[in-house]
């Protein structure tokens, strides 16, 4: 009941989407009614186009994001722990942070060609900095008495890094990863627009260029839904991983 109440505005939006084009309040060419989009979605699903492109997208997304989270966490934590590395890397991070990473997609194509590697690299670069900064801030915020307790128990400095600093920074790292997840979708779709060949972004642009607007909307709706579900699933995982907090 409460879920129904919470998502009521979305339901309302769906209703509006159906009615407005039918009453010609909006041009049905530009915005096909929701039911028409649903039929187009069903056809895409039956033809297998949705599955094959969706799978390709998902693979690249997971690869790029995983790479970004692993490298970003390691880099952020090490920067917080070793001052020389911080002094070397931090100015670069700060300078590149505001840059829209999608601008690098053509560079990736130049270096890695028109394939998955370029897409994964673009997603990786997009995810990297938010994770680096959150891991860095989390690791810097570690309570020194936790580090001391571990050292007094006989832990080596390297062990402290993995056994105390990383778990201490986990709430921040996971929050940064959530931002990275959202960014990874942006970079996924934009790199597929540019590179083409396959993926949901490619499907959307291909259908749009071909004038199959109802199917194009079905593609957009799919990406939006997958993004929403990914975030929900991620939140559930995050809550479990942080169950030790109050």
């Amino acid at each position: 009941m409460s879920a129904l109440k919470r998502y009521f505005p979305i339901l309302l939006l769906g209703l509006l989407w159906e009615i407005a084009p039918r009453l010609h309040l909006i041009d049905p060419e530009s915005v096909p009614p929701l039911s028409t989009v649903a039929v187009a979605w069903w056809n895409l699903l039956r033809s297998g186009d949705l599955a094959s492109n969706g799978l390709s997208s998902l693979q690249n997304l997971v690869a790029g994001l995983a790479l970004g989270v692993v490298v970003g966490t390691a880099l952020g934590v090490l920067m917080a722990w070793y001052k020389p590395l911080d002094e070397l890397v931090h100015p670069v991070v700060r300078a590149l942070y505001p840059m829209p990473k999608s601008a690098l997609i053509p560079v990736m194509i130049l270096w890695l060609g028109l394939g998955s590697a370029s897409k994964i690299a673009s997603i990786f670069i997009g995810c990297l900095l938010p994770v680096v900064l959150s891991a860095y801030n989390g690791a810097r915020g570690v309570d020194r008495v936790l580090v001391w307790s571990a050292l007094a128990a006989g832990a080596t400095r390297r062990a402290v890094l993995w056994e105390v600093v990383v778990p201490s920074a986990l709430p921040e790292i996971l929050a940064g990863t959530r931002n990275a997840l959202a960014l990874s979708f942006i970079l996924l779709v934009s790199s597929e627009f540019v590179i083409g060949q396959r993926g949901l972004g490619y499907l959307i642009s291909f259908l749009g260029e071909g004038g199959a607007y109802d199917a194009m909307f079905a593609g957009v709706l799919t990406v939006a839904t997958v993004g929403f579900l990914a975030d929900r699933i991620y939140l559930a995982i995050m809550r479990r991983a942080l169950a030790w907090r109050e």
């Binding site: 936790l146 001391w148 307790s149 778990p167 030790w244």
Partner: peptide, 11 residues
């Protein structure tokens, strides 16, 4: 060592 604020590993 035992600290005032316990310094337990919360995880």
């Amino acid at each position: 060592i035992v600290f005032q604020n316990f310094a337990l590993f919360p995880w």
